Simulated scan of single mutants.
Amino acid sequence: MHSYLVTVVAALAAATTAVVLVEVVHRLIRRWGRRSLLLTELTEHAHRAVQVAATVLAVQFAVRFSTGYAVGAPWRQVLLHLLVLAVIAASAWLVASLLVVVEDTALARFRVDVPDNRHARRVRTQVVMLRRVTIVVIVILTLGVMLMTFPAVRGIGAGVLTSAGVVGIVAALAAQSLLGNLFAGLQLAFSDAVRLDDVVVVEGEWGRIEELTLSYVVVQIWDDRRLILPTSYFTSTPFQNWTRTEAAVLGTAEFEVDWSVPVQAMREELRRLVENTELWDGRVCVLQVTDATGGMVKIRALVSAASAGALWDLRCLVREHLVAWVRDQRPTAMPRLRAEVGDGAGALPWQWVRPSRTPRRAAEGEVPDDARLFGGSDDGEARSEAFVGPDEPAEARR
């Protein structure tokens, strides 16, 4: 009984000493490292792991040295084995915590709350995926090391290795879908096909990538719904990524109007509208007639914005404003079906309405910039170079 009490007291003393020592070091580091991001992350994320690992290790040494009198006792072997398992688990927790600290410190250098954050989102996506992979690997290795501490498991190790090929084939066939999603997640992280906060269109829904894991991807739809898709979906199904190269995007607003619509006046009205709103990023403002069949003229307004959300609001604003402009300023341009009776050259009210203001006309023979998508400006010339048609090779244009 006296020996047991000595062991208990030694274990408690060792645990108390370890806890006090870790707490003192923790307070000193927190005080001295207020200006260091790495030390701050260590005090916040690795404190408990260090405390547990140090305590378990101290208790193990205390029990081992205080029970030297009972080297061959079964209870001592069982107790020391349990403490070894606890040390392995605590060490794995400590290693995982230190990796998280390093990853968080690295991520702090890349801000995603800035307009041009494509590189930062790419790094964040890859680091998050690596964090998940490393944690899974640490857990598997920890379980393997803990199992190898049992003599029976070490004895059957050779048999396990010889049958590993057959077991691996069977496991791969059984978990084909799971492994497919796992490798698809790694492919997405390092192929730069999709990143966190990317704006995508999947399954006819528009949203952004909210979470990307090794098995599934969460897409936050614009109306706050969540679309859960397996990672293999993004490697096997076509989808739209609006922010793969940059956050700025283009959008259209289409109108079907009568042939009497004054295109140049409508173009100038679009220009005045976008120049007076903060939603427009100043890159593209084009109005073109894209079709003129079936008794209607189809007009497309192409505008640009710095983000997908701003583009949505800008497109809605363009539609609302130009619809009101056609209704109030150019009522003869509203869609209609004609049935003329009599002399079509007469000056009847329904044949012609004098505009309320004479629009500014472009110089004769001059095509305004707002009428050309692939020219007229530096952005249009760059777009023309990127979309060379098959009848005009790039070499011929140079």
Rank of each mutant, 00 (worst) to 15 (best):
A14P: 10
A15H: 08
A15S: 02
A15M: 15
T16F: 13
T17L: 14
A18N: 04
A18Q: 14
A18M: 07
A18G: 04
V19D: 09
V20Y: 12
L21V: 01
V22F: 02
V22L: 01
E23M: 14
V24F: 08
V24T: 03
V24N: 01
V25A: 09
V25F: 10
V25E: 05
V25W: 05
H26G: 03
H26K: 03
L28E: 09
I29C: 00
I29L: 07
R30Y: 10
R30T: 10
R30L: 09
R30I: 08
R31G: 05
R31E: 10
W32A: 13
W32R: 14
W32G: 13
W32Q: 13
G33D: 09
R35V: 03
R35E: 12
S36K: 00
L37A: 04
L37H: 00
L37K: 15
L38S: 12
L39A: 01
T40R: 15
E41Y: 10
L42M: 08
L42K: 05
L42P: 00
L42G: 04
T43I: 11
T43C: 15
E44S: 13
E44V: 15
E44A: 12
E44H: 13
A46I: 03
H47Y: 14
H47K: 15
R48E: 02
A49N: 06
V50F: 13
Q51T: 01
V52M: 02
V52G: 02
A53N: 00
A53R: 07
T55Y: 01
T55S: 03
V56N: 06
L57Q: 00
L57E: 00
V59N: 09
F61Q: 15
A62D: 05
V63N: 00
V63W: 07
R64G: 05
F65E: 00
F65T: 02
F65I: 03
S66H: 06
S66A: 04
G68S: 05
G68A: 02
G68N: 11
A70Q: 11
A70W: 12
A70L: 13
V71Y: 06
G72P: 03
G72W: 09
A73W: 14
A73L: 08
W75M: 00
W75G: 01
Q77A: 10
V78Y: 14
V78K: 10
L79Q: 12
L80H: 10
L82M: 13
L85A: 07
L85T: 09
L85H: 11
A86D: 12
A86Q: 15
I88P: 06
I88Y: 11
A89E: 14
A89F: 13
A90R: 11
S91V: 01
S91L: 03
S91A: 01
A92F: 08
A92Y: 03
A92I: 07
W93I: 07
L94W: 11
V95S: 08
A96I: 12
A96Y: 02
A96V: 10
S97C: 05
S97F: 14
L98V: 04
L98G: 12
V101R: 15
V101K: 15
V101Q: 09
V102T: 10
V102M: 13
E103K: 05
D104Y: 11
D104R: 15
D104H: 12
T105F: 13
A106V: 04
A106Y: 07
A106K: 05
